[in-house]
């Protein structure tokens, strides 16, 4: 638990960093725009909107770069908070946001949407619904043996994930190899290239609901991570909290994954980075994971869209950049005196 002295700069860092990065991401992109013009677009939008010759610059900043940065923040934050919360709930540091099958379920839903419909909205809707369906199935599978709910839930998650993985493979097999298979493949590697305000609002509602729910019970996650017996003895309604957390993390993750595609690693590694920096108290850990996860994905997306001529899928970069980054933090903090 950070002291009051430590918590003020930590909170400031958590708030300022995303604002700075979102600001920075407006200035970086393939289309060459002078920094002065970008500032002018931001602070005097009227000039740019009214001039048809300059409308493209205006829409580039306001309708592409800004929603994309905001979406990256929301998706990264949601995955990271969900992963951190599930690590506490399952008392397992190796758990991530996709533990209960939500990512593979959403992947299958998206494949179905791509194969059956051409409509982007149907892809979101099916990805979201199948993400949640996978969690419900994992929960039901985990309840077959009632004696060790968390262990069997993890097992249920593994089984349902593998079933949906198989279904994804099947969808790839039947998809039109010229047209739809590449779309499926790129979706599964994760991308924010489709980002716009409409897409941002699609994701905003579930992410907001899920993350708010997790934040509200974050003290209870501390107690739950001591184990069922101790948590009950300390006065936690473990069943209610477990259901609440599974529902919130699933809604937030499904909301994120349905617009971004499968992005692994963030839900696993960002909470651990934050643990190394501020310890394990979820009251501090989860809000900071939201901020760090969001910032991390903004950075990754910046790299993805500016390092090469074509966009690199985000799912490829999260591990490539995140792995060494994590090792550097581990080395610098020497485990943060924590593990």
């Amino acid at each position: 638990m950070p002291t009051r002295k430590q918590s003020v700069p930590t909170a400031a860092l958590g708030i300022l960093m995303p604002i700075l990065l979102i600001g920075l991401s407006l200035f970086i992109g393939r289309y060459d725009l002078a920094p002065g013009d970008i500032l002018s677009i931001l602070f005097q939008p009227g000039h740019w909107m009214s001039d048809p010759d300059r409308a493209i610059e205006y829409s580039l900043v306001h309708e592409i770069r800004l929603p994309r940065a905001l979406l990256a923040f929301m998706v990264g934050g949601a995955l990271s908070v969900s992963g951190g919360a599930l690590q506490g709930l399952f008392r397992n540091p190796l758990v991530d946001s996709g533990m209960l099958g939500v990512s593979t379920g959403a992947g299958f839903g998206a494949c179905l949407g791509i194969v059956l419909f051409q409509n982007a909205f149907m892809v979101y809707a099916l990805a979201f619904c199948f993400g949640l369906l996978a969690v419900v199935l994992s929960y039901l599978a985990g309840r077959i043996y009632d004696t060790a709910p968390t262990v069997t839930l993890v097992l249920g998650g593994v089984v349902i994930s593998s079933i949906f993985s198989a279904l994804i493979s099947f969808m790839k097999f039947v998809a039109d190899p010229m047209e739809k298979l590449p779309t499926i493949t790129f979706w599964l590697m994760g991308s924010l290239s489709r980002a716009n305000f409409q897409e941002m609002f699609v994701a905003l509602i579930p992410i907001l609901l899920g993350v708010a729910g997790i934040m509200l019970v974050r003290w209870r996650i501390n107690v739950l991570s001591l184990g069922e017996r101790e948590a009950r003895a300390l006065g936690v309604d473990t069943r209610l909290c477990r259901i609440l957390l599974i529902a919130c993390t699933s809604v937030a993750t499904a909301g994120a994954v349905c617009v971004s595609g499968t992005i692994g690693w963030i839900g696993l590694i960002i909470p651990h980075m934050v643990r190394l920096l501020v310890g394990n108290d979820n009251r501090v850990l989860l809000p900071l994971s939201l901020s760090f996860g969001g910032c991390f994905l903004i950075l990754i997306d910046l790299i993805a869209r500016s390092i090469a001529d074509t966009e690199i899928p985000i799912g490829v970069l999260t591990a490539l950049v995140g792995g060494p980054f994590f090792i550097v933090i581990l080395k610098r903090t020497k485990g943060g005196g924590s593990w």
Binding site: M1, G88, R91, N92, P93, L216, V217, R218, W219, R220, N222, V223, S225, L226, G227, R229, E230, A233, L234, G235, V236, D237, L240, C241, R275, G279, N280, D281, R283, S338, W339
Partner: peptide
């Protein structure tokens, strides 16, 4: 209890503070 689960390395004060959980609402700390 006789032994404790040691999954996450909380500080001693955090562990003792968990004793106050029964006096905090579901959505509060």
């Amino acid at each position: 209890s006789q032994k404790s689960d040691r999954t996450f390395p909380y500080t001693v004060l955090e562990i003792v503070l968990m004793g106050r959980t029964a006096y905090t609402g579901l959505f509060s700390s």
